[in-house]
Nucleic acid binder design. Structure first.
Lengths: 114, 114
DNA sequence: TTAATTAACTATACTTTTTATAGTTACAAT
DNA sequence: ATTGTAACTATAAAAAGTATAGTTAATTAA
């Protein structure tokens, strides 16, 4: 049993899923393996709404997986996101996740590639 | 871009997360590496509500990851769940997820082990 | 013999997460 | 003077997850 800020996680799997289990968290993290500005990320994830991206980024930041850096003081702002050292420990797992998806898409007949 | 039943997934990562991304799906799958009866699973996942377990099991079954077998016709039923061959392709990834959680719990000061 | 227990769920209501759409700020370019 | 831009925020609605209680038909316990 694990605890973070009084929240309980019954096993190590549920602990990992707390970090990458949101609907788009793993996708966002993989895109941030290379440092990016907010709008670059947003354009790459055009199927995710702004609000969701924004909320997920905040959670990832609060969880210590990504770092947000602001370079200007007045609009239009320049903001960059990148993985922290802690976030980088997830890279092998994230690549494994992407890899399983790729292989599965090839062999599973229900999945169509366009 | 991938498609399953007219649902779109922009990248292989999002495709994988469709299968394991629900809040408890990965946890359920890891517990089903060994075939189990419904109540065994439920007791092992005491922090998850019945409704959630039930819904997730149905989705996992619909996704072809697990197989449900009924051994009786009248209550109390005997129902067993196990991974399909397709579900088994996820095992290395699931173990990776559990492993990252274990290692992270050791080194991350915000995570407490009880 | 009647009551309690069991396995595997389902029903209802509620909360949290995600989606859809539109609006904000202060400057820069046209 | 109007339009465009970056990085969000606001509001409302839909989907996912939680909390709690109820169902079935047989078995076991009192």
């Amino acid at each position: 049993m694990y605890c973070i800020d009084n929240k309980q996680f019954p096993c190590s799997t549920s602990l990992t899923m707390k970090y990458i289990g949101g609907k788009w968290k793993a996708v966002i993290l993989i895109h941030l393996i290379e440092k990016k500005r907010y709008n670059e990320l947003r354009k790459e994830l055009s199927m995710v709404t702004e609000r969701t991206i924004s909320l997920q980024l905040k959670q990832l930041e609060a969880d210590g997986l990504i770092k947000r850096t602001v370079y200007t003081t007045k609009p239009p702002l320049k903001v960059e996101y990148e993985l922290t050292e802690f976030g980088k420990t997830l890279i092998p797992l994230l690549k494994g996740i992407a890899q399983w998806g790729k292989e599965t898409a090839k062999s599973n007949k229900r999945i169509k590639t366009e």
